[in-house]
């Protein structure tokens, strides 16, 4: 290491008077003879001054109230879990614009491609092998037909809204623009705070009929 390189490693300690007396003497004796290192120290000192003059950002006036609203949306069960990623993210119009629009466009494109593929296949003549399979297979359906309006697998009567599945990941499903470790795999519901404002995505116990499921 040359003397100038050693001075480089001591610049901050020298400027902040944190160097040992021996190091301070070493730096000063070198600066007396090296204009390059003198310029280096002076410029670093100026850069530090510029940093200290940077303007401070101010949060919006609603910041504190929004934080309180988010914590009010958390239930005792969430607190008991103590998982760092059990959070209550906010849905905002910005999230919708940032993630919803491009993903909706991608979904529309995928749907168009699938539709095109299906329409092409439906236009193809049946192959010999398919005909053979049809002829040898049992004509009776394996599963009895389901009456419209009823479900064969669920005893629940009446319409059940399927949960909206949100995938976190690249190019699949819908992303909320969220940090992965902020969200648990699980079921969430959108709750509007009592005092109104932005709906909060709140984790709940797994219930398949609730509106939002987040998967990774």
């Amino acid at each position: 290491m040359t003397t100038c390189q050693r001075i480089d490693s001591l610049v901050s300690a020298y400027l902040e008077h944190e160097a040992s007396p021996a190091e301070m003497r070493f730096v000063e004796s070198h600066l007396a003879t090296c204009s390059q290192c003198r310029a280096q120290i002076s410029e670093v000192s100026l850069a530090m001054e510029e940093l200290s003059r940077l303007p401070r950002l101010e949060t919006r006036a609603e910041f504190t109230e929004e934080v309180l609203a988010r914590t009010r949306g958390l239930r005792a069960a969430d607190l008991d879990s103590r998982e760092p990623w059990l959070m209550a993210p906010r849905f905002t119009s910005r999230h919708v614009l940032q993630w919803g629009v491009p993903l909706a466009a991608a979904a529309a494109l995928a749907l168009a491609l699938v539709t095109l593929q299906i329409s092409r296949r439906s236009g193809e003549p049946e192959t010999a092998s398919r005909e053979t399979t049809t002829q040898t297979s049992n004509p009776a359906p394996a599963v009895p037909p389901v009456e419209p309006g009823s479900t064969a697998t669920s005893p629940v009567q009446g319409p059940v809204t399927p949960p909206e599945v949100i995938h976190y990941g690249k190019g699949e499903g819908k992303s909320l623009g969220m940090a992965r470790d902020s969200y648990a795999l699980g079921t969430y519901e959108l709750r509007t705070p009592r005092e109104g404002g932005t709906p909060i995505l709140t984790p709940v116990a797994a219930k398949p009929d609730l509106p939002v499921v987040v998967t990774f």
């Binding site: 950002l57 949060t59 910041f63 988010r70 760092p84």
Partner: peptide, 28 residues
């Protein structure tokens, strides 16, 4: 918010993350 902003230089997202930090403090 200043600390987060200097990391990511995104004003709105830095506000989101600063709020999230407070929510985590509350949770834990």
């Amino acid at each position: 918010q200043n600390i987060v902003y200097r990391y990511i230089r995104d004003f709105q997202r830095s506000e989101d993350l600063a709020q999230e930090a407070f929510v985590r403090v509350y949770l834990h």
